[in-house]
Amino acid sequence: MVQIEKIPNADGKGFTIAAIAEDVERVDAVDYYRTIFVEKQKVILRETLRLKNPPFPMEDLEPFIEKTATADWEKLYKQIMAEKVPDFLFSTLKADNRNYQERFLRGMKFTPEQLAALYFRACQELRYTFSCYSSEHLPNNRDLSDMPILVRVEGEQVEKVGETPLSDGELRQVVNQRSAIYGKILDNGDEWHCFFITIESAAGKENWKEGQPHYHYISDKFGISREEVVKQLQSKDYRLGNLPHLELHNYRDEERAVEKK
C-alpha cells in the first residue's frame, strides 16, 4: 500500500523521507491513511533514535517505535474527526441528480483536514469505500529513468540526489512542466463521488479565482462512467469537461519534486 524510502542528502548531512503511496481500490479510508502515516512515522522515529546512538540494539526499540507511531496516529485521527465537515458536502453525497450536487458545491470552501474527515465519515457512517488513483507525466517524452532519485526546485536553484544525464536546466524544465493528477473516489454500490486535484490547481496555476488552490468534483450523476473517469485521471491530458471547483484553504504547496518510483 505504501513504500517508504530514506533518501540521503547530497551533502551526506541529512536525509529525506519519501512516502510513495500505491493506488488502491475500494478500501477503508481510515485504514489507508493510518497505514501511510504510521509506516512513515516509524521510519522517522527509527532514524531519529539512530542518530542518538543508543547503547543497545535498535531492534530492542521496535516496540517503543511501534507504540509511539500508533499513538501519534490516534492523536491525528482525533484531530481530523473533530473537524466540522461542511453540511453541503454530505448533502452532495446524498443528492440524486447533478443539478443538486452542483448547487450544494457552489462556493464550497474546505481544508485538507475537512476533506479527510469527509472520507473517514463516509466510510464509517455511510458505508462507502475509498479508492485512490494518481498519475504523473513528464514533458518532452522524458523518461522517469532519466531522473535522479530526488530533485527539488526552488526558483533558479536545483537540488538533486542521485545520478542523471540531465542538466540542471533540463531538470528545472521537467519539474516545472510535468503534469500530475491525484484522485479519490468514494463508492457505495453504483453511486460514486470523485474529488481530484492536479498539480496546476494545487499550485494555483489554473485561471480560477486568481490562482486559488482547488479540487475538482465529478460523480455518477454526470453521465460519464467510473471507468472512463479513472482512465482520464491516469491520462496525460485529462478531459472531463467543465466540472465544479471546490476552494481548498490552509493548503501548503507540495515541494516541487520528482521522485523515482
Score class of each variant (00 low, 15 high):
C194L: 07
Y100V: 07
I149V: 09
D253Y: 01
V258K: 00
E255C: 01
Y32F: 15
S131P: 07
R178G: 09
N176Q: 13
E191L: 07
P213Y: 10
G162S: 05
Q177K: 15
Q173G: 06
I181P: 03
L126P: 02
V43N: 07
P86L: 07
A180R: 12
C132P: 00
S235W: 01
V2T: 15
F222P: 02
R178Y: 06
I224T: 13
Y32G: 10
Y32C: 11
I149T: 12
K236Q: 11
D60F: 02
Y33C: 10
F88M: 04
F56M: 13
E255K: 08
M58H: 08
L93E: 08
P139D: 04
E163T: 13
A29M: 12
R127Y: 06
R226G: 00
Q41P: 04
A69K: 07
S219W: 04
V230R: 02
Y100R: 12
D28W: 00
Q177T: 10
L93C: 05
A116S: 14
A69S: 11
V158Q: 08
L61Q: 10
N99D: 03
C123F: 10
V230S: 02
Q212G: 07
R98H: 07
Q79C: 00
F88E: 14
I181E: 14
E125C: 09
A10Y: 09
Q101V: 03
Y77C: 01
T129D: 09
V30N: 13
A82L: 03
V151F: 05
S235Q: 08
I197L: 09
T68F: 00
R172N: 13
D28H: 11
L118G: 14
I44A: 06
P165M: 14
V174R: 12
V27K: 10
P244K: 03
H137S: 03
K52W: 02
E247I: 08
